[in-house]
Design a protein around this nucleic acid. Structure first.
Lengths: 144, 144
DNA sequence: ATAGCTCTCTATAGTAGCTATAGAGTCAAG
DNA sequence: CTTGACTCTATAGCTACTATAGAGAGCTAT
């Protein structure tokens, strides 16, 4: 049961180019090739790509996924590392939510400053944006 | 009162390279030059850069900021366009928050699946990630 | 004047995770 | 035998910067 890259992509809900990209990045192993130099994939490839895509749908970075795949390929150890990775990831997501909610509040405050159609010079929003004293506090890398 | 790029950057809380980048992108006008070919800035530049940085701190894209600057430089019309832009931006932020909260729930569910230190094959998290039936629903471009 | 130091200049490449394009080859059906 | 769908490689583009190299400007201390 050997399928080509288009089928593999379809079954995993991603683009053909993305599969090749994962191969280049070392997340997917180099597959066998047909006589005409087409990539040929089997069940293990399908499962692995679905694993990757599922991790991506959980917004993990390729680097995190690489780590998970490494742990998975190396099943002698215990799985404490996986718990740590997931816990860290959850915390990052929660921090991002908090930052976005703060941001939303700033934007809503700004929106209140102009009700509608005034001449440009009187627009409270523009003036609010010009006001250099009301910058949003941000850490070094915002991670919104 | 003419300052050089380092001072300008310091006053606006960004890097020197970022100022040059904004110039290349057409957000900042090309400034006058000194005899030694150094960029020289005045008050208008300072105000404009602070405006840009404030918008960035509100997570607006450079493209959105370009639009705002265009509206600002063209003060004959009324300011309805600014309201629309801001409203759209707030909605994008709210969608992102919603998506992240969903994502967080998925991650927390996954975390429940493995309490601690089992051998790798039994790790509920890895098995949960392999399960292709539990992908997170995502629109075309996730915008997390 | 010369050394040392900080600031500035241009140009280029790298970051993440793809997406898009060009130009060529493969393969099955009509 | 040609059409069409699929695949191949290689390269450039996207966002908003960051990092690097190598050279010049301008000030202070000797």
């Amino acid at each position: 049961m050997e399928i080509r890259i288009g089928d593999l992509a379809k079954r995993s809900g991603c683009e053909v180019v993305t599969v090749r990209y994962y191969e280049k990045e070392g997340l997917m192993p180099k597959p066998a090739r047909s006589g005409g130099n087409f990539r040929l994939y089997g069940d293990a490839h399908i499962e692995r790509l679905q694993f990757i895509r599922h991790c991506r749908s959980l917004d993990m970075t390729l680097s995190e996924i690489r780590t998970l795949l490494g742990l998975r390929d190396n099943p002698t150890q215990d799985c404490g590392g996986i718990n740590v990775l997931l816990e860290t990831h959850i915390q990052q997501v929660e921090m991002r939510v908090a930052a976005l909610l703060q941001l939303r509040q700033h934007l809503v405050n700004l929106r209140e400053k102009c009700s509608g159609s005034r001449p440009m010079e009187a627009c409270g929003i523009l003036n609010g944006l010009s006001d250099s004293n009301c910058h949003v506090a941000r850490s070094k890398q915002s991670n919104l």
